[in-house]
Design a protein around this nucleic acid. Structure first.
Length: 465
DNA sequence: GTAATCATCT
């Protein structure tokens, strides 16, 4: 039922004088929530005199469906009746999706004290920890679950892939298979994603064949994952074949193919495909333009890059993000347009990150433009004086350039700016030994010691190139 | 009531 029908039913309910009935009210909230009409759902909810747990759950579900996770959590905190298991499951899902570890932990505490954990609730907690990057807690919880189902395994495997541990995710998948658990289309989607990031064509192909042989019903998610896997593994032919055989494709599917083409240097194919995509009426998103700009970047298509970058906001109403600016800056650098690159970095609406500064400084080093390199370092120090990460970067550059006088200058600047905190440290491995380079410590080191650290970075740099 | 696909530049 759509929102319009919901309103009609609402009207009839009012006429019949049934609006005061709790069950009728709850059903209306559910109905409005399910079709995304949150203002009507909220209105019914607000006008209720007596609310039960179902009323609250229905409102929370409405916010979840609409992707308003913060609101879902805030409704939970306003509850004046005892939450049910279903409430906790929904709110844990909200904490998983918006990264609210604090609330999630609080709910975990409440559950331990007052509820009996069932499978679904256990999975919801597991997912909350995994999505918040707490793998220690997650593993403990996974090991201690009285029963595990395919969802529990999927949460762990997906979490590992998404936090950049595809190898471990495949190991866990093998373990699952050893235990005789049959994979479904959903878990195979994540397994394909792991294969894609590892570039393991043989395993990816096995998954594809497994799906075919077992007659596992696959949908647009799985299809996209297969396209992505083949594209990333360099089998563009297979990627195209699957792509065209799919009954439906969405922006993600097109993006998978576009990224694959861009990644393998098939620049004109990527640009052509983008045209077909727009003609087909599929809306590009930020990732689409990232793929397109990358393609331009790889073959030095400056004018085309500029055009697509402009069209992003002009034609598609997409605001370029940090990554798009990074791509453009890299494109300018590769084309030798260093001044333009620096200008874009200075005028972009958000603060450039270390990667962007690194690209710029690296470009200066490549062409031997010491003057511009110094100017960039001054901008960085103006902008990011409280971020000690920049000092690692600048020290790196100084070390690479063998300009030790700069190190002294940096050390003085750090002292002047009062940089003490060390949010990050670089661990450098030399001869199998890990050396930790903590930025905040540098100001307390003797000049000779700084030289040692920088030499170390320098030697690592040359080893890796 | 819980699980899934796309992501540039060192």
């Amino acid at each position: 039922m759509g929102s319009r029908e919901g309103r009609q039913v609402h009207g009839v309910v009012v006429k019949l004088g049934l609006l005061a009935d709790l069950y009728v009210q709850n059903s209306l909230i559910r109905c409005y929530g399910a079709c995304g009409d949150l203002s009507c759902a909220g209105k019914v909810f607000d006008e209720m005199v007596v609310r039960d747990v179902v009323s609250w759950n229905s409102l929370i579900s409405g916010f979840m469906k609409a992707g308003h996770f913060d609101e879902a959590i805030s409704v939970f905190f306003r509850m004046d009746v005892e939450p049910s298991i279903a409430t906790l499951v929904s709110v844990l899902a909200a904490c998983a999706r918006n990264g609210n570890l604090c609330t999630g932990k609080g709910i975990h505490g409440v559950i331990e004290r007052r509820f009996k954990v069932n499978l679904v609730l256990g999975n919801a907690m597991l997912d909350m920890y995994v999505k918040n990057g707490c793998f220690y807690e997650a593993k403990k919880m996974f090991d201690e679950l009285p029963t595990r189902d395919i969802v529990s395994w999927t949460i762990m495997i997906t979490g590992l892939v998404q936090s950049d541990h595809p190898k471990e995710s495949l190991e866990l998948f093998s373990m699952m298979r050893t235990l005789g658990i049959s994979p479904d289309a959903i878990i195979l989607t994540s397994v394909l994603s792991a294969c894609a990031s590892l570039g393991t064509l043989d395993f990816g192909t096995w998954v594809h064949e497994y799906i075919n042989q077992r007659g596992i019903k696959w949908d647009i998610h799985t299809g996209t994952a297969i396209v992505d896997m083949y594209a990333k593994c360099g089998c563009i032919e297979m990627a195209l074949q699957i792509f065209y055989s799919m009954p439906q494709r969405n922006t993600f599917t097109w993006n998978a193919l576009l990224c694959g083409l861009a990644m393998h240097g098939l620049v004109h194919e990527a640009l052509d495909l983008f045209e077909v995509m727009t003609i087909s009426g599929v809306e590009p998103n930020e990732i689409t333009f990232l793929a397109i700009l990358t393609a331009c970047c790889h073959s030095g298509l400056v004018d085309e890059g500029r055009k697509y970058f402009e069209n992003m906001s002009k034609l598609y109403n997409l605001l370029p993000k940090l990554e798009h600016y990074g791509c453009m800056i890299d494109l300018f650098c590769r084309a030798g347009l260093l001044e333009e690159a620096v200008e874009l970095a200075r005028t972009m609406p958000m603060k450039p990150d270390m990667l962007i500064w690194g690209v710029l400084l690296n470009a200066c080093t490549t062409v031997g433009n010491v003057e511009l390199s110094h100017r960039i370092q001054d901008y960085i120090l103006e902008l990011d004086h409280d971020d000690s990460g920049v000092f690692v970067l600048l020290s790196n550059i100084s070390a690479i350039n063998q300009r030790w006088s700069n190190v002294t200058r940096l050390r003085r600047l750090m002292k002047d700016r009062g940089v003490k905190k060390a949010p990050g440290s670089s661990v450098i491995e030399v001869d199998g030994k890990a050396h930790e380079f903590v930025v905040g410590d540098i100001s307390h080191l003797q000049t000779e010691e700084i030289y040692k650290v920088l030499n170390l970075i320098n030697s690592v740099y040359h080893e890796s190139h």
